[in-house]
């Protein structure tokens, strides 16, 4: 009797270190953040006052840097994050697929893949600095403006990071530049793993190159593509470093995204409750993707 009770306890004993660490560093902070989001306070004295859902109400209806609907156009951090969510993973997967498939047919495959992978070795901060230089409005300094000025004679330099229309796209492209390397390597490996026989069979059945790709290769690649897409969606939602170094959310909040707003409201504006509310919204948005990813990984294991 005694030994049976002991044997029931033993697994808990082995799981304890992981459980304690997870509770301390993941579960506890999450619960505290959720609690803080219903309060008002500062970094040093959080939770001064219970305000109920006030933070959420202000965020979603009054904070024009988070979500606003002016002149029939949605804008704000939520919208900018949505642009990230759509463009960032799509561009990464498409360019990754393109390079993986095309590079397979040329001799300099290793070189092109190395070039694509190189940015993965550069920290996001360094990449942000490069892109700030690249996007500089002064055509003597900014390569992109210099290039466009050389191409079009009457070109007026564009402040890529300074204009409301371009800034978010410019930061997204910097993100794409950093992250596509992973996509290329993963998708290329997966593409090579597609058995040659399947391709051969397709070819014998009279499929052309285009049909072979869409009907044979792509379905075989759906696993890795989903993996990259979901990972990049999560990265896009929690992105902060590029925005912090490149634009600080300027101009006029055009590059503010949710992850950055968490930092900005909590630490710069010193409103822990408000920042926590943004963090909780971020958590809610990321959750479905994480659940999906975890389920998928578990299924594959």
């Amino acid at each position: 009797m005694q030994s049976r009770r002991l044997s029931k306890l033993i697994p808990w004993f082995f799981a304890a270190p992981a459980l304690i660490a997870l509770t301390l560093f993941f579960v506890y902070p999450t619960i505290v953040t959720i609690f803080l989001s219903f309060t008002r306070g500062t970094i040093t004295t959080p939770a001064k006052e219970y305000v109920g859902l006030d933070n959420y109400r202000i965020l979603l209806t009054e904070d024009r840097f988070f979500l606003s609907f002016e002149d029939g156009i949605f804008s704000g951090a939520l919208v900018n994050s949505f642009a990230w969510l759509i463009i960032f993973p799509t561009a990464i997967v498409l360019i990754g697929l393109l390079v993986a498939v095309l590079a397979d047919k040329v001799k300099y495959e290793a070189i092109i893949k190395s070039i694509m992978f190189m940015p993965m070795a550069i920290s996001a901060t360094a990449a942000a600095v490069i892109f700030r230089l690249l996007y500089n409005q002064n055509p003597n300094l900014g390569s992109l403006n210099a290039f466009l000025a050389a191409l079009f004679p009457n070109f007026q330099p564009i402040a890529f990071l300074g204009s409301v229309e371009f800034a978010n796209m410019a930061v997204i492209f910097a993100g794409v530049w950093i992250s596509t390397g992973l996509s290329v390597v993963v998708l290329s490996a997966a593409y090579k793993a597609v058995p040659a026989e399947i391709h051969e069979a397709g070819r014998i059945d009279g499929a052309n190159a285009w049909q072979l790709f869409w009907r044979v290769s792509l379905p075989m690649l759906s696993g890795p593509v989903t993996f990259i897409a979901v990972t990049m969606i999560i990265n896009a939602l929690k992105m902060i470093d590029l925005v912090l170094v490149m634009t600080k959310g300027a101009p006029r909040g055009a590059t503010r995204i949710i992850g950055y707003t968490v930092f900005w409201e909590t630490f710069n504006n010193n409103r822990s409750g408000y920042g926590s509310a943004v963090a909780v919204i971020l958590l809610i948005l990321v959750m479905p993707f994480i659940i999906y990813q975890v389920r998928r990984v578990r299924r594959e294991l």
């Binding site: 095309l102 490069i130 230089l133 690249l134």
Partner: peptide
């Protein structure tokens, strides 16, 4: 076309690193 696409992507990806 294959070479052209790869060349363009390669240059776009290389320029920032070379700049750095």
């Amino acid at each position: 076309p294959i070479h052209a696409i790869l060349l363009i992507i390669g240059i776009v990806w290389l320029v920032p690193s070379v700049g750095l």
